[in-house]
Design a protein around this nucleic acid. Structure first.
Lengths: 345, 345
DNA sequence: AACGGTACCGGCAACGTTGCCGGTAAATAA
DNA sequence: TTATTTACCGGCAACGTTGCCGGTACCGTT
């Protein structure tokens, strides 16, 4: 064991308090936890001495006994606008409920997701809040933990194979709102920048996209569907290709604002007009899209609320005597219409 | 003590391993830590049993002995682009050096900063990485910890009164580059959106701003200096006021991109040209500014590197036998020139 | 045959805290 | 007066791990 390293002046322990008052450790302990078997005078003197010595109970020792650390582990793919807001929501709820938050970023890498899970479990977090990385294929690690009844709450990017508590957006509704709006604006050839194919959000939004096209009797043209990483540069190049192809789209729906921003750059580069030639709708409603020229329409959701809700569900499980049945909370998105998609007055 | 709440199946302990092999706990412990006093066969059987029982050493028990948790506490004002990147750098270095990171956001509130410090100290973090909130006036809490030789590294927003290890940007250089550039482009009445008055970054950039004006023989007009929170809306209104004032500026330098974006909105609103009527330079080089019309010049810095460096210094302190002298690392910024400030070909 | 050395192993204390049990003195009841 | 309750307190074990000390075979030496 590494015993090296600098160690600051040791803080007072319950033992120091007891010694200073010439009473037993047990009595101090009882006095502090308001147990009945303590003389009021004794209790008062203990409290005074605690004040004087600046005694604070050692959480590590308590953790050793209770096997609880009051710590929540968070695994997210990155810290972009969406996840930053989600983390803020998690931190917010954690503060309210007396937990602290350990954050690990997987950088969209499955390998790193594995490492981070190990890291957090070793640190003995009481539970986990997870959003999958984009190249996350295997869920075995979480399956194993869940089978041992270790509490995990998933959010946003979830796994369909896992029967676990999760908080997600109604992605089908979001995509439906977006595509319906585009069709109402007269668009007929609507492309979809779909993002990573194995992510739940991509798939769900795809369903909304396709269903809406079908509903309005429009053909589904697979050449208008482009999968990719969440990479603006890639979206830029894909959009150039779409524009230069024989069947140029008259609208583009993006699974995320990051991609739709790349698309906008490409359209401007080619000198086409937005929304007259190509209309745009993104997803997430990041602040940036309202600042662009023209401002881009986007499906808004509250990452903050999602994070708060995920933390709330986890803490409920942690505070519960027994195992709670897994549930899925679905939040509602709202389409924010801006100049990038409004053709009709 | 709260003993309620659900607890998953207990993992194997060293005792279980010992019992399964009918040997003593001590021997298992020695075998696992590659001590010499162990028979090779015994060691092998221990390793096999460890594998079988999926034994993992209990970090909490180790922490109780060593008083170390291998955890770093991070206190930041928010999770905007800059701090997200910094956190990524911290997390990166932490992963390399075997630490995990606890993050608390103060939401620019001093009160919450206090609470978060308590929270992290209670969780027994080994050290702290801190960037002050904008209404952080008192540094007594950190002073107290530092006087007890508790390791803290400050970054970006530091306190001049604290003699502590810190990582900062050469803010004077950044502001000097920005203002010099504006003057070279022919600007003579340069306003400064200064941000919160008590923040080190505001003050340092102010020094660079004023010195550069003096160097070029330009008068310092206090009516062109505006303090505020990091609030886009406020910057928007301030800029409108500047524009409508009798001595309208011909350039605006902003302590952060968030403020300069608000300024841009105001200038567009009034129908003035950028950079011909008013040139703009921001700070941080957030991705958004390169996407705006026109793209905004900005002083670029690497928040990622800053975070990594802060974590590196902290870990060095944590791994050191003795107390290291406090030091200040100063990183160099680079001005990125874009259309918002380029008047001459 | 007695001795010292080596190789290996088990027991105990400690880290800081709480739960449980048992004990002592005073106060009350018989 | 004696028995019994009440009020209060201390000791011990345990949580999981490591460091330290002491012990026991077995080996080779002289």
């Amino acid at each position: 064991m590494n015993r090296s390293g600098y160690r600051p002046d040791k803080p007072a322990t319950i033992k120091d308090v007891a010694k200073a008052l010439n009473i037993s450790i047990s009595t101090v302990s009882r006095a502090l936890r308001n147990k009945p078997d303590v003389n009021q005078e004794t209790r008062q003197s203990v409290l005074r001495m605690v004040e004087e010595l600046e005694y604070q109970p050692n959480q590590i020792a308590l953790s050793l006994i209770t096997q609880k650390t009051h710590t929540i582990g968070v695994i997210i793919p990155n810290l972009d606008y969406f996840f930053s807001m989600a983390v803020r929501g998690i931190d917010d709820m954690a503060l309210e409920t007396g937990y602290t938050v350990m954050i690990c970023q997987s950088n969209e890498s499955y390998a790193r997701e594995l490492v981070n899970t190990q890291r957090l479990m070793k640190g003995h977090v009481d539970g986990l809040i997870v959003s999958n990385s984009s190249d996350s294929i295997n869920t075995e690690q979480y399956q194993r933990l869940l089978s041992k009844n270790f509490p995990i709450v998933f959010f946003d990017r979830v796994s369909s194979e896992l029967d676990a508590t999760s908080v997600v957006l109604d992605n089908i509704s979001g995509a439906t709102q977006a595509v319906t709006h585009l069709i109402e604006q007269g668009c007929r050839r609507i492309a979809y920048l779909a993002g990573p194919a194995n992510l739940s959000i991509s798939q769900q939004r795809m369903i909304g996209y396709k269903h809406t096209l079908e509903k309005y009797g429009l053909a589904i043209d697979e050449s208008l569907i482009v999968f990719s990483e969440f990479d603006r540069e890639f979206a830029y190049r894909s959009t150039l290709a779409l524009i230069d192809s024989p069947n140029r789209p008259d609208a583009i729906f993006g699974v995320s604002d990051r991609l739709i921003v790349g698309a906008q750059l490409a359209i401007k580069e080619r000198g086409l007009r937005i929304p007259e030639d190509i209309a745009l709708v993104g997803f997430n409603d990041e602040p940036v899209v309202s600042l662009l020229t023209p401002p881009i329409s986007s499906v808004a959701q509250s990452a903050f609320e999602m994070g708060r809700m995920a933390a709330k569900l986890l803490v409920e499980q942690l505070n519960s005597e027994h195992i709670l049945p897994s549930q899925t909370i679905m939040l509602k998105p709202t389409l924010i219409k801006r100049a990038s998609s409004i053709r009709k007055p």
